[in-house]
């Protein structure tokens, strides 16, 4: 086993989503900040249990939406009124009601891009590898495993204490995850 300085973190397994949620709350209350949980499905209320801050994603989407709104209006004002003014059934060139569907669609499109790529950006994706995959059990997080991992970067990190702590809050198995491939 590699020395503790090269440990990525301690992975603890819990029996079910409720235990995992309680464990996350205990870890949060103990003052740990660098930890993450892994489960086969989203667990409602986990954000609060982990003490996560509200996501910044909404703001990214808002900015993209506003760009879509202004861009949509600008595109149509320029093309319909400045570049190619064409009479359409006696309506004014600046025909704002008719601009709404295109503007709306552009707001939706750019917001969707903002959400999709913003999520990639915030999750630091794409990523070719992550130390958590050195675990022997983590694959089960996509099946029936409920895991919590405290990272060694945490200010409160002390390997033995962390292991004892995770055992005390009811972890069924404990595993050290090395930073480098073993």
């Amino acid at each position: 086993m590699t020395p503790s300085s090269n440990t990525y973190g301690i992975l603890a397994e819990f029996k079910n989503p409720a235990d995992l949620m309680d464990a996350a709350a205990s870890v949060r209350d103990a003052g740990y900040t660098r930890f993450d949980v892994f489960s086969p499905f989203p667990i409602h209320g986990m954000d609060d249990a982990m003490g996560l801050k509200p996501s910044k994603l909404g703001w990214i989407v808002l900015i993209h939406g506003i760009i879509g709104l202004l861009g949509g209006i600008a595109l149509q004002v320029w093309s319909m009124d400045i570049a190619y003014p064409v009479h359409i059934s006696g309506k004014p060139y600046l025909n704002f009601p008719a601009f709404v569907p295109v503007t709306f669609a552009l707001v939706i499109l750019l917001s969707a891009f903002g959400t999709f790529f913003g999520l990639f950006f915030l999750s630091k994706l794409p990523k070719l590898h992550h130390p958590i995959f050195h675990s022997n059990h983590i694959e089960r997080a996509t099946d029936d495993g409920f895991f919590l991992c405290i990272e060694s970067k945490d200010p409160l990190w002390d390997k033995n204490k962390t292991i004892d702590f995770l055992t005390s809050i009811g972890a069924s198995t404990i595993e050290q995850i090395p930073e480098e491939s073993p």
Binding site: S89, G90, P97, A98, P101
Partner: peptide, 12 residues
């Protein structure tokens, strides 16, 4: 509300 208006406005 807008859809109802737009269809009628556009068809004229």
């Amino acid at each position: 509300a807008f859809s109802q208006f737009l269809l009628i406005y556009y068809a004229n």
